[in-house]
Amino acid sequence: MPQLADLDLLLSVGSHGSVGKAAQAHSLSQPAASIRISAMERRLGIQLLERSPAGSKLTEDGEILAKYARNVIEAARELLEFGSGARSGETKRLRVAGSPAISEHLLPEWLNRSRFSFGEVRVEVQSGGVDALRGMIQTGLADLAFIDGWCEAGDRGQRHDRNDLVTRNICDDELAVVVGSDHPWATRSTPLTVAELAGAPLVVRERGSGLREFTDELLDAAHAPQSHVELPFNAAIKQAVATSRRVTVLNVSTVRAELAEGRLHLVAVDQDMPAKPIYAAWSERRGLPGYAAELVEVAAAKGSPVPVVGAGQRSRKAGSRSRLRPQQSPAIDVHEAIA
């Protein structure tokens, strides 16, 4: 009989597509994780993984075992939670996960607008990338995840995908050009052209991030020389822009506090800026606990993030054709969201 820890490790390999990444998630070395998977294969007499230099994926037998493993691990967690709740008298718990920007800038406000702030339920928040969040839902580590994805939301209702995920569109988070208060563009009255933006000294995210991919695509079209500083975190980018005359492109949700304080300013652009959809995801098999369903409704009712500007500062300059997109209510497919 495989151990629960080994089954959980197998599920992580399926979610991450890599024994090394799964090992890291379980605080194991890659050789140790490989030995445990190989031992489980020998014990069961089946091959669980297809291994290649590009990574590892579950075989057909591995997928079947993973299906049973999810049920076993979830049942074990529910048993442990029941025992813990019976001892402490605390039975209401909500495990929420979110992308880093959502967890930091949006989720606290959504929680404050719900009844969770009155102590009726214990809320545990985790953060991670898209693949990690999907894995948390599939393995039962989270009841609900809020994920941001780079795609256009379609005119469709709630969607179910082949990996037991249900997704619902919550809102859109528009991208915006941002400068510090000392930058000449902070008081500019005419829309900025993409060519002007491409020729400015920029602060950008690291290669491989969705924000960087959009920024590169936008600026490459201008065929202008680009001078930039590359930073891995939004907080570092905001600090660099606020204390210099550099320019950046960020999501509106991540700069609302700085706009309200007057440390950062939005600059209008002569074209529409795209919006990044934010959606909720949960397990179709386990469904949504009542508190989680309430949080989804609170988030959807709040709508798309809009700038909170300080006194004397306008969120959009006169004559701008760039605008915030209206909230879209349909849900989107998780696979399209991460394409």
Results as ranks from 00 to 15, higher is better:
M1K: 12
L4I: 05
L9R: 09
L10I: 07
S12P: 00
V13N: 08
G17V: 00
A23Q: 02
I37A: 08
Q47K: 08
Q47F: 02
L48W: 14
P53V: 01
A54Q: 12
S56L: 12
K57M: 13
T59L: 11
G62I: 04
N71I: 09
E81W: 03
G83Q: 07
S84K: 14
T91Y: 08
V96E: 04
S99V: 07
L106V: 08
S114H: 04
F118D: 13
G119A: 06
M136D: 06
L144R: 09
D155M: 10
V166E: 10
H183A: 04
S189T: 15
S189C: 02
S189D: 14
V194W: 03
P201D: 15
L202S: 02
V204W: 07
L211E: 03
T215K: 00
D216H: 12
D216N: 10
D216W: 15
H228V: 14
V229G: 00
E230W: 04
N234K: 01
T243H: 10
V255G: 01
R256S: 04
E261I: 07
R263F: 05
L266I: 13
V267E: 08
K276I: 14
I278A: 03
A281E: 04
P289I: 02
G290Y: 10
Y291N: 10
A292P: 03
E294H: 07
V296H: 06
E297C: 06
E297T: 10
A299Q: 05
G303Q: 09
P305R: 05
V306A: 13
R314I: 08
G319K: 06
R321K: 14
V334H: 14
I338T: 05
